[in-house]
Every structure is written in structure tokens, then in C-alpha cells.
Design a protein around this nucleic acid. Structure first.
Lengths: 110, 110
DNA sequence: AAAGTTTATCGTAATATTGCAATACAATAA
DNA sequence: TTATTGTATTGCAATATTACGATAAACTTT
């Protein structure tokens, strides 16, 4: 095995899982944080910021892009990457919903 | 390779990544949602709810527990699993922080 | 104690991820 | 055109994940 049985889960569950998985690596969390912190969003700057080789960073960027968490636009020779607001908002709403539900339950057990 | 270079990232980045990774599988998202939806939190009920074999579910529960997203308490013969409020609140705050920062930036590029 | 119930662990096969060197590709500069 | 610069892709080795059958462990009931 090694592949998830996505067929049996809801679209929403799969969507959350796919985005969460993309953030399941510190380098990719660092990329998102860097994109929010800085004004420049040039790929080369991200490579310099991270303790990883250029091909590895490129791979991480590709993954974030595939999942829709970031988007890239060609900026002359370089490429400018930015966070995608919609995708991150989906995650934000999910976790806010979760914590809201938790408060309502207030430790009914455990 | 196959192992993440966690040494070079901040503790917070690693913490977020570890929890996000745990939610990077639809079954584990489904488990969290189920625990919030229902009053019963018996392991057997979770196994019945998911389209996966009992050992597989047990493995997923273990992962969620290792990461601190859920906690389990022995309930006679069975085991009662519940979400851990603190851990999920950390994620909620992270994504709220992210979306807040996004709004401030308002598409400076891309 | 013996049998049943519930959950965890072991072992293993299939697949996925991570990381990087080498290299290719694309756009600009000389 | 020929560098040069910036990014992506390929190929591969090391490791991790997913899934489940078989089995063990722990508690309950009979």
C-alpha cells in the first residue's frame, strides 16, 4: 500500500487532508510564513531563506502550488510566488469551526 | 532520503508541520470530525464509522495521539478517544494569524 | 477458568516522500 | 549568438506511509 483510500471520504475531508498534508513539512510552513512576511516573493529569495538545495525548494513550491496554497506568476526572468487567499481561508474556517464545536461540547468525556 | 530536515526550522514551524501532517489523511480528518459530532467516543464506533480495517484505524488513532491532537482514556473494556482542545487551538490560531496577515497585505503582487 | 469483546502490535507488501546532483529549460544580458 | 541568471525536471537512494491479516494483550462476562 502507501496510497490513501480517498474514495470513501467526503470531498471536503479530502480537500482538507490534501492541504493539511501540503503543510505537513516544516519547509512548506516556512515558505508560507516567508511569503506573508516579506514583500518580495521571488523564488530565488525563498531558496536563499531555506536551508535546502534549490531543486528541493522547487519541489516544495510545486507541491504547494499543486494543492492551490500558493500561486506563481512569471516576473521577467524570475518567478513570483504568493499565497492563495482562498485556499488558506478554507483551512482557517475549518479549524475555527472545529474549535467552536469543541467549546460547545466542553469535555463531555475524557 | 525520506526524512525531513527538521533541525533547520523553528520549533513552531515544526510543531505546525507535525500536526498538519497528522491531518494530512482524510481518515484522520474524518476521525476528528466524528469525535466532534458524536457524544460517544469509543474506539469501536470509530472503526465502524470508517471504511478501513480495525488495525488501520488503530494506527491512525495512534498517530493522532502521538501528535497530541486526540487523547484516549480507558473506559472499562473499551477506550474513549477525544479531541485535545489545546492542540487544535494552536492550529486554529496559526491559520487565523495567516489569514489576518493576508488581509493586511492585500495582493501586493501576483 | 474459559470464552467473548475490544484494542494494540507485528510483519509485510505496495506506494509515497524527501533530498540532492546533474541537467535541462527559459529569459535576459553582453 | 553566446554567456549568464533563475527555475524546473530527471534520476536515484534513503526513508516513511498506508493498509491489512494474523496475532497478542487486556478487560468482562459467564
Amino acid at each position: 500500500m502507501g496510497a490513501s483510500k480517498t474514495d470513501h471520504f467526503t470531498d471536503k475531508q479530502n480537500a482538507i487532508a490534501v492541504m493539511a498534508k501540503a503543510l505537513g513539512h516544516p519547509a512548506r510552513v516556512a515558505i508560507i510564513e516567508y511569503l506573508l512576511k516579506t514583500d518580495s516573493c521571488i523564488c530565488g529569495d525563498i531558496v536563499n531563506e531555506l536551508p535546502l538545495a534549490q531543486p528541493t525548494v522547487s519541489q516544495h513550491l510545486k507541491e504547494l502550488k499543486n494543492v492551490g496554497l500558493i500561486k506563481g506568476s512569471i516576473e521577467g526572468n524570475a518567478i513570483c510566488y504568493c499565497v492563495d487567499e482562498k485556499a488558506l481561508t478554507v483551512l482557517q474556517k475549518f479549524f475555527t469551526h472545529v474549535t467552536t464545536k469543541m467549546e460547545k461540547k466542553k469535555n463531555q468525556c475524557c
